Simulated assay, not measured.
Amino acid sequence: MSRSHRLFQVMQLLRQGAGPHTAARLAQDLGISARSVHRDIATLREMGAIIDGEAGYGFTLIEDNALPPMGFRDTELEALVLGLREVQQIGDPELADAAAEALRKLQARLPNRQAHRLRHAVLSAYRLQRPQPPGIALADLRRATWDEVEVRLDYCDAKGAVTQRQVKPLGLVYFDRSTVLIAWCGLRNDVRVFRVDRIAGFEATDVSFRPHRVPMLRDALAQMRADRAACAAQAGVEPDASEG
């Protein structure tokens, strides 16, 4: 098998499923060594493919430079407009500005008919009651979450007690009246939910937990759904997520 053909085969395997694809499995499918797979991944990255992951964890194709941008069906476009306008309502200032800019970019790149449909969309979003504004820069917290580094929080609970926590930030969820951080809490040694408007202070550390954020978040959300379903079955109501 030539090197160019093998690179093509690696890309084809990465395109299949959501990943991550381990080097051992890719090597088995291609009949080559895991070391050759790592070299091929490095070459594909140099050629422009955006591939997330690392040795010992697995690889996921994030952006494929070989495939052209796909167009949108009208209903997909309406969903995008509604979603971006919702972000303008509930997001922090940087996120709201990014949503507005994304709408402008979409309009500039769409065919004329769809650009007109976006400009005069029949769907919109408006919140009479927006989430409580946070006292910290959410952009910095999002960046720490993407960077997969632990953060230190000064957290004020519902009774006004302040505790210091070092947590692994896994993701942010926007509820009707509050935005919450889902994180692994070192103090509780378990997943906890923190309302961001109750975070009095925040500092990113240099302690990395890469590349474990995605599977940890997936497990945390699955456990939260199971807990809520169990509570709902017992009480006949859907309980709120528990804090800190």
Rank of each mutant, 00 (worst) to 15 (best):
R3G: 03
H5F: 09
H5M: 12
Q12W: 02
L13V: 07
Q16Y: 04
G17H: 09
G19H: 10
G19Q: 08
T22K: 08
T22W: 07
A27M: 05
I32T: 14
R39F: 13
D40M: 04
L44Q: 13
R45L: 11
M47H: 13
M47E: 15
A49T: 02
F59H: 08
T60W: 08
L61A: 01
I62F: 01
D64G: 02
D64K: 05
P69F: 04
P69E: 11
F72W: 13
D74K: 01
T75N: 10
E76L: 00
V81N: 11
L82M: 12
L82Q: 09
L84A: 03
R85G: 04
Q89W: 03
G91C: 07
E94A: 15
A96Y: 03
A98D: 09
A100Y: 03
A108T: 02
A108H: 13
N112D: 15
R119W: 05
S124G: 14
A125R: 04
Y126P: 00
R127F: 14
Q129S: 10
P133R: 07
P133E: 09
P133S: 09
P134Y: 11
P134Q: 11
A144C: 09
D147S: 09
D147L: 10
E148R: 06
V149W: 02
E150R: 15
V151Y: 04
T163V: 11
Q164T: 14
K168T: 07
L172W: 11
L172N: 12
S178Y: 09
S178F: 06
T179V: 09
V180N: 04
V180M: 04
L187D: 13
V191K: 02
R198L: 10
R198T: 10
I199D: 14
I199T: 08
E203H: 12
A204Q: 15
A204D: 14
D206W: 01
V214I: 11
V214W: 07
D219I: 00
A220N: 00
A220I: 01
A226H: 12
A235G: 02
A241Q: 06
S242E: 15
